[in-house]
């Protein structure tokens, strides 16, 4: 594959194709994230691995089984099954890799709309190689976004200075919205 294509996909994953904030897939996981940078990165890396592994399995399943035998209506349930099995398997072997705090949250965290949305979007990509690069790029974007968000939200935003009715979720949304605005500006696509 051309290096330019890989670079393009990765940039898109971080900027224009940003799942968590722009595509609104897995936004909950990001908005809820109040972890430290280190833990955010650990969970993000875990999620990226989940994205890569699920793509590796769901892309061929879709191409060679579901699409071939016109079983597309089973797509969601099959994909979710694959995600769950992979997340559970990673949970089983992942204790050493993630610290205990993250490990306890990993299952809840990794089962999110971004992973499923990615698997479904990836079924439209023509080669497995590109799908895997996309998965990596989206995982990277997801990790960066949630780390950035928690950093901004819990370090930079002073809730006491926010009007009472905007405290909590509204200010979280506005904070995320600012990141979105920055991403959209890079996207030339407001």
């Amino acid at each position: 594959m051309d290096f330019k294509i890989i670079l393009g996909i990765i940039l898109a994953g971080i900027l224009s194709n940003n799942y968590a904030l722009i595509e609104c897939l897995g936004t909950g996981a990001v908005l809820e994230n109040e972890r430290s940078v280190k833990r955010s990165l650990a969970l993000g890396a875990g999620t990226t691995v989940v994205m890569l592994l699920t793509t590796l399995i769901t892309w061929p399943i879709n191409k060679f089984v579901l699409a071939k035998y016109e079983l597309e209506y089973l797509q969601t349930i099959v994909f979710v099954l694959v995600i769950l099995v992979i997340v559970e398997a990673m949970h089983l072997i992942g204790r050493k890799l993630l610290d205990n705090y993250c490990h306890a949250h990993f299952v809840k965290f990794a089962i999110n709309g971004a992973v499923l949305g990615l698997c479904i979007h990836n079924t439209h990509i023509d080669t497995l190689g590109k799908a895997l690069v996309t998965a990596f790029a989206v995982g990277l974007g997801f990790t960066l976004t949630m780390t950035l968000y928690s950093k901004i939200k819990y370090v930079s935003v002073d809730e006491d200075a926010v009007p009472a009715s905007f405290r909590g979720l509204p200010i979280s949304l506005l904070t995320a919205g600012m990141i979105v605005l920055a991403l959209l500006a890079l996207n030339f696509n407001i």
């Binding site: 209506y73 089973l74 349930i77 099959v78 099954l81 099995v85 559970e88 089983l92």
Partner: peptide, 28 residues
């Protein structure tokens, strides 16, 4: 012990997806 949990979980998951798969097939 952990592995056993994992296997049981997978087994239940497969059973549940089989039920819903069949339901989806019927609905289809």
């Amino acid at each position: 012990m952990k592995i056993k949990y994992f296997v049981i979980t997978i087994a239940i998951l497969l059973a549940v997806s089989a039920v819903f798969g069949a339901a989806a097939f019927a609905l289809n």
